[in-house]
């Protein structure tokens, strides 16, 4: 092989390997830093390990919001129509946090099955449903329908999916 070509080949190999290693490291660190979205059903089924940071979301259950007398602590439940999960949070809730509204919480599941949230998100648009929540609700609704053979789908899951359709911004 021509010496200059050899040199060039070495350089290219070096660049390719360097680039590969860099991308590999980036991807590895990415996989350590992602927060997976989990539906209330998945959490209720015990698919989520305790202590791992996840994002969980659903519709805030009517009448489930309980505030602390003194501070800013608040506990509420979210549902995807099939299962509900309690969430505990201390701090200021977003403007659009309301019962019946779709929200996403970032937090960890504790031993009592409660999500200790460090952040609660509800987008700044009353028409907006977080896409994860939308998917979770539809998924739960589908599962529910299959379980009931489509004959006697519970009215509650219907009303939820209806409300999503009305809320759907897209």
């Amino acid at each position: 092989m021509h010496p200059q070509r050899k040199k060039r080949l070495k350089l290219i190999l070096f660049l390719v390997i360097g680039f590969g290693v860099a991308v590999g490291l980036l991807m590895y660190s990415l996989s350590q830093n992602i927060n997976l979205f989990q539906t209330p059903t998945q959490i209720a089924n015990g698919e989520v390990p305790v202590g791992r940071t996840i994002r969980a979301g659903g519709l805030v259950v009517d009448g489930s919001v309980q505030r602390d007398e003194e501070g800013l602590a608040v506990t509420f439940q979210v549902t995807d129509g099939a299962a509900t999960v309690p969430i505990h949070y201390e701090g200021i809730l977003p403007d659009l946090f309301r019962e019946g509204q779709g929200i996403v919480a970032l937090g960890k599941l504790d031993e009592h099955g409660v999500i200790q949230a460090s952040e609660v998100l509800a987008k700044h648009d009353e028409n907006y449903m977080p896409p994860e929540v939308q998917d979770a609700l539809e998924q739960a609704h589908e599962d529910g329908k299959q379980a009931m053979q489509g004959a006697s789908a519970t009215s509650s899951s219907y009303s939820i999916s209806e409300s999503i359709k009305n809320d759907g911004a897209y």
Binding site: V23, L26, M27, S29, L30, N33, I34, N35, L36, F37, R55, P131, E132, D135
Partner: peptide, 28 residues
């Protein structure tokens, strides 16, 4: 670019809904 497109890719492949935390971007 990677941190921005990664969640889209994972979602597209049907591997779940993820978000890349701010901490990752800070570390990079």
């Amino acid at each position: 670019l990677l941190g921005t497109l990664y969640p889209l890719l994972i979602d597209f492949l049907g591997m779940g809904k993820i978000s890349v935390g701010a901490s990752w971007f800070n570390v990079m």
